[in-house]
Structure formats: C-alpha cells, structure tokens
C-alpha cells in the first residue's frame, strides 16, 4: 500500500501574465512506512506539493491519494485527515500564532484531537524536541529561531499522525539540535511506523533520512533515485548531477 500517491499533479497560482505553473506533471509514490525526500532548486515547487496535499493550494489537477483514498479537489480536509497527516512548515515564524503561548498551542491541538491527559503529553512533547518545560509558557517572540521550529515540530507530533510532512524541518537549526531532532524523527518512525515526506535542500540530511529521493527543477520532477544511487552518484539528469557535485565538493573540501 502506498501512504501517498501523486499522479500527474499540476498546481498553479494566479492568472494571465502572473500565472505560475508551480508544479507540472509530478508523479511519485511514497510507500507506507517509508521516508521519502524531495530536493531541488529554490522555487522549484517542493513546498507547493505539500501545500496541495494539505489543502493549502486551491488550484490543482491530477490525482492525490492518501492511504489509497483519493482526495476530493473541491472540499477542504477533515479532522480525520489531519489526525493522520501533519505538516511542519518551512517558516516557523509564520506558522505560530504570535499571541499563543507554547502551552496554548499544544493544549489546543491535543484537545482538538481528543486527548485528555494533556498535562503529561505537553511535558513529554517538549522533552522530545529538546526544549523542556522551562519553555512551556513562552510566546513565539520570546523564542529563538530554532526554538520556534522545535515548537512547530512538537505541535505536528501531538496528534500522533501516521504521515508527517516535513518542509525543511531542520534548516533553521544548528547541527547539534539537528542531530537530536533527526534522531527523534528516526525513533518515532521506527516505533510507530510513520511515513515521512521530507523537503530539504541539504542532500546530506536527505541521504541520512530517506530511502527514496526525487529531484525537482522549475516545477518538474527531473529524476527519482534511491539513496544508494545517490550515494554512489548514479544519477543521469544534469541538474541532479550538478546538485550532488556541488554539495559534495563543498563538504569534501572541508572534511
């Protein structure tokens, strides 16, 4: 069974001369329990794919299936959808409400999804993302960039989703916190059989986390590969080649 299945997905914004064909004819499948990576140029449509799936990009065509159920284009997503699919947004600033404390954000989500042992869960979630209870009553403006991102991750984990969409989840984090979060995500995936669809511009992070990877450029998927292909540089499209060479060259020069 595939957890996620995109078939000929097109997503566009605007009209006339301002029309942007942000995603064009994208097809790929994410098997249940798999971790799947989406990499590519800035502005190539990676976040847009996640947004179309979660109902945040209204104009799309093609097919999207979640756990083999086809999504309805006209309708919004219901609570059952958000119970199984959660998203960590690329921009932790925009995704937290400025007047809600960490405690309020988490209690609200937990309550909405029918949990009653809210106290204990909040403590646990904050521990999991390496923040601890000292941060519980802070507001977003009292947190650093990386701390906000960790609150966003805690919020996404709260409903215990089976599919987690991660849009650059660690690009705002320093490497030590990144290591903690990536380990946490791996543990959760192993424990609960989670499925990840993860966007990242860092190929080393994607290689660490994902079994399959697609490369995007200007709205199109130009290549799909396994992580072993990627590590062995077995790629054919010139853009994926240049992306790999550039990321490796810049690491190798140093290590």
């Amino acid at each position: 069974m595939s957890a996620l299945d995109f078939e000929g997905l097109n997503v566009w914004f605007g009209e006339g001369r301002d029309r942007v064909n942000a995603v064009q004819g994208a097809s790929f499948k994410v098997a249940s329990g798999e971790s799947f990576g989406l990499v590519g140029e800035s502005g190539s449509g990676k976040s847009t794919i996640l947004r179309a799936l979660t109902g945040l990009a209204p104009h799309w065509s093609g097919k999207i299936r979640v756990m083999d159920r086809e999504l309805d284009r006209g309708k919004g997503r219901d609570r059952a959808f958000y119970k199984s699919v959660q998203m960590v947004f690329q921009d932790p600033y925009a995704s937290l409400h400025p007047r809600q404390s960490v405690d309020q954000v988490l209690s609200e989500v937990l309550y909405l999804h029918g949990f009653r042992d809210i106290e204990a869960r909040i403590e646990r979630l904050l521990d999991d993302v390496g923040l601890g209870s000292a941060f519980r009553f802070r507001y977003p403006h009292q947190l650093s960039g990386g701390q906000r991102q960790r609150v966003a991750i805690a919020r996404a984990l709260a409903p215990e989703p089976s599919i987690l969409l991660l849009d650059e989840p660690t690009s705002a984090l320093d490497v030590s916190v990144q290591a903690e979060i990536l380990n946490l995500l791996c543990d959760l995936r192993a424990e609960h059989g989670l499925t990840f669809l993860m966007v990242s511009h860092d190929l080393v992070v994607v290689a660490h986390m994902c079994e399959h990877i697609v490369v995007m450029q200007q709205g199109r998927i130009v290549e799909e590969m396994s992580v072993s292909d990627m590590r062995a540089m077995r790629v054919t499209h010139p853009y994926s080649q240049s992306l790999l060479e550039a990321s490796l060259g810049y690491r190798r020069a140093q290590l």
């Binding site: 030590s176 791996c186 490796l248 290590l255």
Partner: peptide
C-alpha cells in the same frame, strides 16, 4: 575551524551527518 579545540565546537562538528559514511544515529552533543 575543523581544528577547533573547545569541546563544544568539537561536539558540533561531530553531530554532522556524513554523506560518505551512513550512520544509524547521529552523535548528540
């Protein structure tokens, strides 16, 4: 920077994932 001495800096450098050497878990500071 890669010769840095402070244990914190060393810890930071060790937490980086490696492309050439896959690991199951990343080292945590």
């Amino acid at each position: 920077l890669h010769e840095a001495q402070h244990p914190y800096t060393r810890g930071l450098l060790n937490s980086l994932p490696r492309f050439d050497a896959p690991q199951n878990r990343l080292e945590v500071l």
